[in-house]
């Protein structure tokens, strides 16, 4: 149906381009291309992006997606990507020296962007885990930055202090927080939930870049002094308009007629009262 309409619309165009001698077969061949052209947007949407985050300090990992290696000997805090994949279920494998450290299946939606973090659980002695985070790619105003902080470190629930105050309280391993902030460099500290010390990580200077989503992954273990952060950025579309110079919200003037300064209103009222009094006097 859709295909037919497009072909009909294109037919005169083809005719003009090729002149009156255009053959039936040429037209048919061109028409055959139309579904391909139409298919392109949905094909693009069927794709997705993966970012692999190496969150195991002290290891260098060979990372693969569906058996295809995408990074060799990735050091801790390395963010690999974007890796273009088809939407759906993908298998992520991390190997060290040929031996599988962990292998998990992740699901990424059509057009989606997914961070896949290979990291320690809250218990420093626990086996590695893989946690995936969907990247929110909503547009932000030009002077703002989107930030997501994820707790993927071998430590209990933490408070994330930004510029000295707790901006995110009680974040547990596997949890994350999204926020939109003015673009700036922030001083970030991670401390045990409900306490101000000992500092688990930081203070560190975190640049939140205008027009980007910055993802910050706390990885490592305070017990082994391997705490660090992995950071990745993704460009976002711009939203919103610039600061106005003028806000004009009165075009009638009626409010001015009723909205004198209180003193003026009193004067007017007094005048009115006086007038009424005078009138009353006159009537008598």
């Amino acid at each position: 149906m859709q295909k037919q309409r497009v072909v009909d619309r294109l037919r005169p165009v083809f005719s003009r381009i090729s002149g009156p001698v255009i053959g039936r077969s040429v037209l048919a061949a061109l028409a055959a291309l139309v579904p391909l052209l139409l298919a392109t947007p949905s094909q693009a949407a069927a794709g997705a992006s993966l970012y692999l985050v190496q969150g195991l300090p002290g290891q260098s990992l060979d990372l693969s997606v569906d058996g295809r290696q995408v990074a060799a000997k990735a050091p801790a805090a390395k963010v690999v990507g974007p890796i273009a994949v088809a939407a759906g279920q993908r298998t992520i494998t991390a190997r060290q020296g040929g031996k599988v450290v962990i292998e998990r299946r992740v699901t990424v939606g059509s057009g989606g962007s997914l961070d896949v973090v290979i990291h320690q659980p809250a218990a420093p002695t626990g086996a590695p885990v893989i946690t995936s985070y969907n990247n929110k790619l909503d547009a932000v105003p030009a002077d703002k930055a989107a930030v997501r902080v994820a707790h993927t470190a071998a430590v209990g629930p933490a408070d994330i202090r930004v510029n000295g105050k707790v901006l995110f309280a009680n974040v547990a391993n596997g949890e994350s927080l999204d926020v939109v902030v003015p673009a700036a460099t922030y001083r970030v500290e991670i401390v045990p939930a409900g306490a101000s010390s000992p500092v688990v990580l930081g203070p560190l200077a975190l640049p939140a870049k205008a027009g980007y989503l910055t993802r910050v992954f706390a990885v490592g273990a305070p017990a082994s002094k391997t705490m660090t952060v992995a950071v990745g950025t993704i460009k976002l579309a711009a939203a919103g308009s610039q600061k106005p110079n003028l806000v004009n919200t009165g075009t009638g003037g009626q409010a001015a007629a009723t909205d004198r300064s209180p003193l003026l209103v009193l004067v007017l009222l007094a005048g009115l009262a006086g007038a009424v009094a005078v009138r009353r006097v006159v009537r008598r």
Binding site: T131, S132, N170
Partner: peptide, 25 residues
């Protein structure tokens, strides 16, 4: 659509999905 290349390494279990912390604004 491009068929997903089937993993040849068995059927791994699903990764954990990250969740927003309760303090998510």
């Amino acid at each position: 659509p491009t068929p997903p290349s089937t993993p040849t390494v068995g059927d791994p279990s699903a990764a954990r999905s990250g969740t927003p912390a309760p303090s998510q604004r």
